[in-house]
């Protein structure tokens, strides 16, 4: 038997590669579906892999007035931090490698890293468009962090009120407890609201169309990424693919943890394992479809002021309402 620590170390590259491949496949599906919804044919499913190969072969241009080491370093930080996220979140039936006490808080912090790397990279590239984009990205980050934090705190509070104080911020414990079983009908409505909020926050984290002010192609020519090319751009491309998988897996772990085996639909064992993996892929598809594909073909782009209004106003209100409903549910149960 292998040493568990060594085993984990060996798992890290495997998870990273799996995450990247899965992310690129989902990006392909996303693009194809978006195209079909826009009455276009769309690219082949393997297009993200072709793009990646092309970007890797292209020249990596560093602008003359860029701070070159920061400019070149930030894509690496972005990809590394998004891969790090994957180590904390269980996906594809692989339990989280770095799972531990309070890992939900770590996830909250690590989630900021890729966006922050983009912002720093944007400022370092010395282009006016990238500077405007970086300013917008910072504002957007500040806006969607609030509803995100409220959602996570609500779940942790629910956990602690229902008897698992010690493991309230442990993703594995939340996932195992299945939060839907902890609440009554009022709380379920609250949780549903929180799920919607988290899906919309994912849209912001992904920088997909109504809230892509930081990249806004027609306004600031790609914004943050305006000066990036070649290998650096490929790294950012991979970052967004991995982030998509990580955020999707986070939503699945928090809100949709039930597997066919747990539900008793399939016998445990090899068949059960395959069924679980397929079910996970289906859930990930639903989350990606709702948070990215569907919304970006359905609406126009917001201005940055509207992004702030939507996240700080409506989304935060929705999250607070969800928290309130969950709270009412718990208090009714306790009394």
């Amino acid at each position: 038997m292998m040493d568990p620590l060594l085993m984990n170390v060996a798992m890290i590259p495997a998870v990273a590669v799996l995450g990247i491949i899965l992310g690129l496949i989902y990006k392909g599906i996303d693009r194809r579906l978006a195209a079909r919804m826009q009455a276009r044919i769309g690219p082949p499913l393997r297009q993200p892999f072709i793009d990646l190969k092309k970007l890797m072969m292209k020249e990596n241009i560093v602008p003359k007035n860029a701070v070159s080491w920061v400019f070149n370093f930030m894509p690496v930080v972005a990809l590394a931090s998004s891969l790090m996220l994957l180590m904390y979140i269980p996906f594809l039936q692989i339990p989280a490698i770095l799972a531990g006490s309070g890992d939900l808080i770590v996830i909250l912090y690590v989630l900021i890293f890729p966006s922050l790397a983009l912002v720093v990279g944007g400022f370092a590239s010395g282009s006016p468009y990238a500077t405007v984009g970086a300013q917008r990205e910072m504002v957007a980050m500040l806006s969607y962090e609030v509803p995100l934090a409220i959602t996570i705190v609500s779940i942790a509070w629910l956990m602690s009120m229902t008897g698992s104080i010690g493991t309230a911020f442990d993703l594995a414990a939340v996932s195992a407890a299945n939060i839907w079983s902890l609440v009554g009908p009022i709380g379920a409505v609250g949780l549903l609201l929180l799920l919607v909020v988290l899906i919309f926050v994912t849209t912001g984290e992904m920088g997909a169309i109504p809230v892509d002010a930081a990249e806004a192609e027609t306004e600031i020519a790609g914004g943050l990424l305006a000066e990036y090319s070649g290998r650096n751009l490929a790294l950012f491309y991979l970052t967004s693919a991995v982030k998509m998988v990580a955020l999707g897996s986070l939503i699945i772990a928090l809100f949709l943890p039930m597997t066919p085996v747990q539900l008793g639909l399939v016998q445990a064992g090899n068949t059960g394992m395959i069924a679980n993996v397929l079910c996970f892929l289906a859930k990930l598809f639903v989350v990606v479809f709702l948070s990215s594909t569907f919304i970006r073909v359905a609406v126009a782009r917001f201005r940055i002021t509207q992004v702030v209004k939507v996240y700080w106003g409506y989304t935060t209100l929705a999250a607070l309402l969800g928290l309130l409903l969950v709270g009412v549910d718990i208090l009714l149960k306790v009394s």
Binding site: Q38, A39, I209, P210, A216, T218, A298, A300
Partner: peptide, 16 residues
């Protein structure tokens, strides 16, 4: 105009 607003679905629809 739809494309400038970031509403590509409408752009493709109107061009159709």
């Amino acid at each position: 105009a739809a494309h400038e607003l970031g509403f590509d679905s409408v752009m493709h629809y109107t061009w159709k």
